[in-house]
């Protein structure tokens, strides 16, 4: 029954945690820019506001895809916190993003379409690294199950430093942080307007935002796995990682898609090198 509790807790608490994280993020970002910044609860105000707005669409189909995106993001996060198979979670996660992309494609609009293409490029950039990270955990803990990975007493980070670094790179893509916020950006100004979310408005946009909160909590949970052997260190490490992402967001220009793809794939190579050394050591040890 433990797994059910994990999943339910995630489904209930993740939006709250995710919204708070977003609020803290915006506050810290503002401070880094010498500004006061919005109230801590601003993300909730924003989402609340979006639900108050009129329903306006270009095509009704877009709402379906975004809803599916939200559901599958929540589902993959719930699977994660239920302790499920990491690979399955990754695939469900990809499925969710494909829905978001399809939502943007469904709208016959140039900016939305370019955003969708870029989102796909991002998926292409980060997907190998996520799979590899899962494989890395398997090599350390002997299981693809989150429950068992989390229960391991081995400090995964010591075995997987390269994988962690690689993951940190794609985390930048996933959190939509500069330099890799290419398909849509939290910052106001981008050459493709709002990219993938250009045509989403009102409650649909709110759903995208909530999905993003779910996603962030899930990703931070993924980061936690690297430090799972000691929960205290784990939480600290997650916080530091997130701070580092905010910092990087604030000290870099946005990259072009080529750089995003290259970085994601090079990060994967780093992960592969890490795993190769690890498997060599394990073979040698065995």
């Amino acid at each position: 029954m433990n797994w059910l509790i994990g999943a339910v807790l995630f489904l209930i608490l993740a939006p709250i945690a995710g919204g708070l994280i977003a609020g803290i993020d915006r506050k810290i970002t503002a401070r880094m820019q010498g500004r006061v910044g919005p109230p801590l609860l601003q993300p909730f105000y924003d989402v609340g506001k979006l639900f108050e707005k009129e329903r306006a669409v270009v095509t009704t189909a877009q709402n379906f895809y975004v809803l599916a995106y939200l559901i599958f993001i929540a589902l993959s996060g719930a699977l994660f916190f239920a302790g499920g198979d990491l690979l399955l979670i990754v695939f469900a996660f990809t499925l969710a993003h494909v829905f978001l992309v399809l939502g943007a494609y469904a709208v016959h609009s140039p900016y939305s379409h370019i955003g969708a293409e870029r989102e796909l490029i991002q998926v292409m950039a980060y997907e190998p690294m996520i799979i590899l990270a899962a494989v890395g955990f398997y090599m350390v803990s002997g299981s693809f199950y989150v429950t068992e990975i989390a229960a391991t007493t081995v400090p995964a980070i010591l075995y997987l430093p390269g994988v962690f670094l690689g993951f940190a790179v794609i985390l930048t893509i996933k959190l939509r942080k500069s330099p890799f916020d290419i398909s849509t950006s939290h910052h106001a100004h981008q050459e493709i307007v709002k990219g993938i979310t250009t045509e989403f408005s009102g409650s649909t946009l709110a759903q995208v935002e909530i999905a993003h909160w779910y996603e962030n909590v899930f990703l931070l949970g993924f980061v936690f796995l690297f430090f799972a052997w000691n929960p205290v260190i784990g939480v600290v490490a997650v916080a530091i990682t997130y701070l580092a992402e905010i910092f990087v967001d604030n000290v870099t220009a946005r990259a072009r898609w080529q750089a995003a793809l290259k970085s994601g794939w090079l990060a994967t190579l780093l992960g592969i090198a890490n795993l190769a050394i690890l498997s060599y050591m394990m073979l040698g040890g065995a």
Binding site: A30, R31, M32, Q33, G34, R35, G37, F247, N250, V251
Partner: peptide, 16 residues
């Protein structure tokens, strides 16, 4: 390169 500014902003408080 931007680090210096970021740190100074964090330390110095907002200019708002």
């Amino acid at each position: 390169q931007m680090t210096k500014t970021v740190l100074r902003n964090l330390a110095g408080g907002p200019a708002t």
